[in-house]
Design a protein around this nucleic acid. Structure first.
Lengths: 343, 343
DNA sequence: CGGCGTTTCGAAAACGGTTTCGTAAATAAA
DNA sequence: TTTATTTACGAAACCGTTTTCGAAACGCCG
């Protein structure tokens, strides 16, 4: 705690606190000569303003919150980078909250935001989140919220997403072109927007391509690792197992590679795999993983920019808009493309 | 901003603000019946206390800061998980700051902390950081700081690290046992504690094993990707290139795999590779990567616990202690172990 | 020189809680 | 019954800023 306050600085300079405060804020009411005097005195005494006194009075915290399911994920960590880059530039601080995919936790976090602790919120909802009523309440309390990647239908606000439907569609087309007749969609619970849209793209592609519907066409993974493994193992151990797999979220990739090793299923010969992921090591995997690479940094940056646009308005209101940033399908050997020169 | 304040709640209950405040704080001065009355009223009106008013008066922010070089790294993201787990449990908020390996940024961040914005700081210093004078100043201002992973010699405080020297030593022993005669150490600038200790372990092992010293025994990577590539390419393109590589930080792994693909250098036949990393995909890489796996979550958790021990003291002082949590050498094919059953 | 508009600054009231201290009532001790 | 002590609450000061508003001081013009 910086022991030196405005009052002390004022006394040291034989000025009033009002004058010093205004001088430090570069107010037009103060003449240049005293401003420089104050600046100098502040530097000399090592004055650092108390942010809480300031926030209390100004009703603004210079802080935003980022709430997301987890941080140990290449998409989210890159998105944080994007967010941080603009927060830094705007002179804002960023609080981070992890929901670990639990709705209850997400609700508790949002409840806190009604206090005005943060000026704005960036959120990627948990896989349990449905209605978004808790987020609506935050918006109602006057703090702008923008969704990124995983959005929520209820609250009308800005969201920055990728072209989930189209990416998924393209992925299935690529799987089919690589010889798949029976691809499986591996997803989180489908109340999640991204799962829903990716699933729709998957199904539309299936229909358009005239691929036959089959059992285990869609596998839903929950939070229990063992159960997920069992589910996937069962699907892959069938008489007519799937010959392609579209993995909806990064952390499920390891299940697939793990089980294929265990069950001696050769990728891509017996099973072709595509995953939504930003893993830098995808190209060095065995075999190199075909990915739907999302512009994670860009999404974070764009979402943050949208938030700050709202914060700069007097009304703090945010446009109800959907910003779509395209993902790229990066073809590698896990779908049977050229066996040499990965990358 | 929650429109309902303590004063309004007090008026609604026909009580004084003092009583309501104390009731919500579960003070012994207030009888149970009025406490429940207040709780009920607060719930009814949706009262959420203003954290800034509270922080200002109590001189405590219920907030800690985590400052680290980057977040897109499996070690740091897992460490954040560990930190968040205990912050949540303690009811604290966590601010995140990224230095992107820049000392100037780190100094600016630390300067801010003199304001009392946070009650404590967890820091993993940038690769440019030397003296730690800026961190000393934060400690002097009364906010406890604990280092994790990347420490700094100057300031006397707690730090939580892994057994860098020993891990490095064991890694070299393993490289030698796998047939390496000329291993190279790939590092960040060595003013970094981890680089220094890992380098010392590397060199001690070289000496103990009687391995000959050679040119390009140590390669220092900076921030420029192209330069790093050139440096490594030059080393690997020599007449007598290194036959082993100990990679000090995760993000450098891709350079090695990339260049080996480009230069048609076979891992592990021509070059054996070990890296300090927590990548979940290490076992699925081509070839599966031998790693020194750090207990990242545990390190984060332990560092946070140490910080909270200090925060619970009246003095806020922190023991000058070094907590070492051991890493594990996980042998895989990149150092030539059994070519089947990776994992 | 008086009136008027600008500068430039200070006193004081916020901001929304917490905490100290005083006090009245209730209870215990004598 | 009187006195000491506890219990339960409220008035007001306080945390460290920002901001409103008033008031000197100054320059300008007629």
């Amino acid at each position: 705690m910086s022991a030196v306050t405005l009052k002390m600085l004022a006394k040291h300079l034989s000025l009033s606190v009002a004058t010093v405060s205004k001088a430090l804020a570069d107010s037009h009411e103060i003449r240049q000569s005293t401003k420089t005097l104050v600046i100098e005195g502040a530097r000399e005494l090592g004055y650092v303003g108390n942010p809480y006194a300031s926030s209390l009075r100004k009703r603004a915290s210079k802080t935003i919150a980022v709430v997301l399911p987890e941080v140990a994920d290449s998409f989210f960590s890159e998105a944080i980078n994007g967010i941080e880059s603009v927060a830094l530039q705007e002179g804002y601080h960023v609080l981070i909250y992890l929901t670990h995919e639990h709705l209850a936790r997400e609700q508790a976090i949002m409840e806190e935001f009604k206090s005005g602790r943060v000026d704005g919120v960036l959120v990627s909802v948990s896989e349990e989140t449905g209605s978004g009523e808790h987020i609506r309440r935050v918006l109602d309390s006057g703090t702008p919220v923008v969704f990124f990647d995983r959005v929520c239908d209820g609250p009308g606000t800005a969201c920055v997403i990728t072209d989930d439907f189209e990416s998924s569609y393209r992925a299935v087309v690529h799987l089919a072109a690589s010889g798949c007749r029976q691809p499986t969609f591996l997803a989180t619970p489908t109340n999640l927007s991204i799962s829903m849209n990716r699933l729709k793209g998957f199904e539309k592609a299936l229909a358009d391509l005239g691929l036959p519907r089959h059992k285990d066409e869609v596998l839903i993974f929950g939070k229990n690792e063992a159960e997920n493994m069992d589910l996937l193992r069962a699907a892959l151990s069938q008489p007519r197992p799937p010959d392609g797999m579209l993995v909806c979220v990064e952390k499920h990739v390891t299940y697939v590679y793990q089980l294929c090793a265990e069950l001696r299923i050769c990728i891509p010969d017996a099973l072709k795999v595509i995953a939504f992921t930003n893993l830098k090591t995808a190209q060095f995997m065995s075999p190199p993983l075909t990915t739907v690479s999302q512009p994670a940094f860009e999404i974070g940056k764009t979402a943050a920019a949208a938030l700050f646009r709202a914060l700069k308005r007097a009304s703090k209101t945010i446009d109800e808009e959907v910003i779509v940033i395209k993902s790229a399908l990066v073809k590698r050997e896990s779908t049977g493309s050229s066996p040499v020169s990965p990358g």
